[in-house]
């Protein structure tokens, strides 16, 4: 192992950045895939896997991916909620792998809501 230069510290930080951000609960954007029994049955796992692949392939560091329970709208599963820091969350319904790829590209990375797949903005509060 070669000795580190000062510059190498930044290089290492950058590489571990996704891990660090996740641990600090701080990301630029957060995507929640609803994974209740209904969601899983409707294919939420595929949505989750697609997102994980997108993040890994593009080496995205500042997007957090989580799951939550059934969102209460089982007929429109699979569903996901996209939250860009400082903006209201947006719920997307009836997802497919192609749809979620587009949402990832346009909304999560590009900042533009994909209106045609969106259900509603805003989110009910967790009690």
């Amino acid at each position: 192992m070669a000795k580190l230069s000062i510059h190498d510290l930044d290089r290492i930080s950058e590489r571990v950045k996704r891990t660090t951000l996740l641990r600090e609960g701080a990301g630029r954007a957060k995507i929640t895939v609803h994974m209740g029994t209904c969601g899983i049955a409707a294919g939420a796992r595929k949505i989750m896997n697609t997102l994980m692949d997108e993040i890994a392939e593009r080496n995205i560091t500042d997007v957090i991916l989580t799951s939550s329970g059934c969102a209460g709208l089982c007929s429109r599963e699979p569903m996901a909620t996209v939250e860009i820091k400082g903006e209201a969350p947006v719920k997307y319904v009836d997802l497919t792998t192609d749809k979620i790829k587009r949402i990832f590209e346009e909304h999560v990375l590009g900042g533009k809501i994909v209106e045609e797949y969106a259900l509603a903005r805003g989110s009910e509060r967790m009690s």
Binding site: I12, R15, V16, T19, L22, R23, M52, A56, L65, S67
Partner: peptide, 17 residues
């Protein structure tokens, strides 16, 4: 750079035990 840390970049949840 060790592999374990590289691997961790892929996870979506971290259980800090």
């Amino acid at each position: 750079m060790n592999d374990q840390v590289q691997e961790q970049n892929k996870y979506r949840l971290h259980c800090m035990l």
